[in-house]
Amino acid sequence: MNNSVANTARLLGAGLRALLVLTLVTGVIYPLAVTGVAQALFRDKANGSEIRADGKVVGSSLIGQQGYSLDYFQPRPANGLGANSVNTQYKLILSGATNLSADSDKLVRSVEEARAKVVEDNSTPGHKVKPSQVPADAVTSSGSGLDPDISPDYADLQVHRVAERNGLTADRVQKLVDDHTEGRTLGFIGEPRVNVLELNIALKELLASR
């Protein structure tokens, strides 16, 4: 009995020592080495692909933002985003999805409301938007709540509104959208998309240069 307890303790000791040695290798040296290479070769990207307008940081080209006025292009809904409930000395954004099911009444209502709002917001006196024109990404929340992109269809849908509110021609704004539409990588990877923050920065610059 004493013998087996001693054996177990010896074995656990070996396990713990193994863990500590491997923690040094994979938990300290490895992340520091990756950080060293990353900061040396890809400093901007390793630090979050921050993007500037008028010399000021206005976010990251990878992270979608909420709260744009209707003068600007609107992002996707982000009903799954949360705020932190612990460590409240910080005001953190918790990424996430709604996790509502395809047969959820709540999701049905949220899609209906989002669609009605998209139709209302984007219908101008000279340009009526039909509910059937509203693409799926405009009325659904993304997985992260931080989706930086919208589909080209949703961007196109917003062209008339943005043009009218800013006193630009629809053709000019459409060209802006086309310039910021990114196709599939190598022609087949992922889906075509428009980065909302980059598009809005370009729009702001266009307005400022008038």
Binding site: A136, S142, D149, S151
Partner: peptide
């Protein structure tokens, strides 16, 4: 129902 209404299974999915 919700996905049919939206016109695609984009809930919880990223555009890219």
């Amino acid at each position: 129902p919700a996905l049919q209404l939206a016109g695609g299974a984009y809930e919880g999915k990223e555009v890219r």
